[in-house]
Design a protein around this nucleic acid. Structure first.
Length: 286
DNA sequence: CACTTGACCTGTCCGC
DNA sequence: TGCGGACAGGTCAAGT
């Protein structure tokens, strides 16, 4: 589910609420969802949040951090103390928390809580040392490429990274986190559409202009995602349990057989690298 | 090497 | 109504 925009929205929401609070208790309902020693977090104060790609790190004042990767179905929901008196905690979620997908609960010093929910159990929380985060690549194996919303994300760097995947379809290449960090399956289809590039085009066949349009398409689609509160297909809610509306503005993702918003040609769905991929055959030429 | 496929899990939807 | 299969936002290991 959560790609860069969704994680960024959660980060922005949470940092308004939890900085300065202490972790008082951690309840682990699914042991595989929590990697590391929870005791290293107890009694310490939250002093900052960092997002890198799709990973969210919550940093404490004792040189430890706990990191979240939401994978396909993870959620991070904050429940403030006021709402906690047995009421329905959120606007859009369909059940009070904890629910059957709740894997970890963090209790905070003002009696508020952070719920880590994850239907498919692919996601995780990891305890890591803050000064080492960069060196150990935020707990992931594939090295992170540039942050696409950073001003440092230049066309030159994007092109260099992209060209490492010469024989791959362009949509598969931009899903590679070492090419650019944070693009997932929704925004990969959207970025190709905005660039006017067929997602199955091989990287080696792209010209300079197309690479430049892809670079811009990635930045634009991710920015739009944040602007519209993220993409809620089934599982995404922000830190307060509200849905995002980016998919109402998406040009192609999840719109198979619907008319292209630009030219009315029906959107088609194909499979690339094992993943569903959406495109307009008129706006995106092979 | 570069690239592709299956595994990890739970749940839903669709065709028969 | 029930059953089997395909599929769902990601990453990683194993296979070709």
């Amino acid at each position: 589910m959560p790609e860069l925009p969704e994680v960024e929205i959660i980060k922005r929401g949470l940092e308004q609420k939890i900085i300065g609070l202490k972790i008082t208790e951690i309840i682990i309902l699914n042991p595989k969802s929590f990697i590391g020693n929870p005791k290293l977090l107890i009694g310490s104060t939250i002093n900052g949040l960092i997002r890198r790609g799709k990973v969210l790190s919550i940093n404490l004042d004792n040189q430890y951090s706990f990191l979240f990767h939401l994978k396909m179905s993870g959620q991070i929901i904050y429940e403030g103390k006021k709402r906690f008196a047995g009421g329905h905690p959120t606007k859009d979620m369909d059940a009070p928390l904890p629910n059957k997908s709740t894997r970890v609960i963090f209790n905070l010093s003002d009696n508020s809580k952070i719920y880590f929910n994850d239907q498919r159990k692919f996601g995780w929380v990891k305890v890591l040392k803050t000064p080492e985060l960069k060196q150990i690549n935020y707990g992931l194996k594939v090295l992170f490429g540039p942050e696409p919303l950073d001003p440092e994300f230049t066309l030159a760097e994007f092109e260099t990274n992209l060209l490492k995947c010469k024989k791959q379809p362009v949509k598969v290449a931009i899903l590679d986190q070492s090419v650019v960090a944070g693009v997932g399956n929704i925004y990969a289809s959207e970025a190709c559409f905005l660039a006017g590039v067929h997602p199955a085009r091989l990287v080696k066949d792209l010209n300079k202009s197309e690479i430049s349009k892809l670079h811009q398409g990635i930045v634009k689609s991710l920015s739009l995602g944040i602007e519209h509160g993220g993409a809620s297909l089934t599982h995404f809610f922000d830190d307060e349990g509200n849905k995002g509306y980016f998919l109402d503005y998406a040009h192609v993702f999840n719109r198979q057989a619907k008319p292209c918003k630009i030219c009315s040609t029906p959107i088609i769905k194909i499979k690339l690298g094992g993943r569903g991929t959406y495109l307009c055959l008129n706006c995106q030429k092979l």
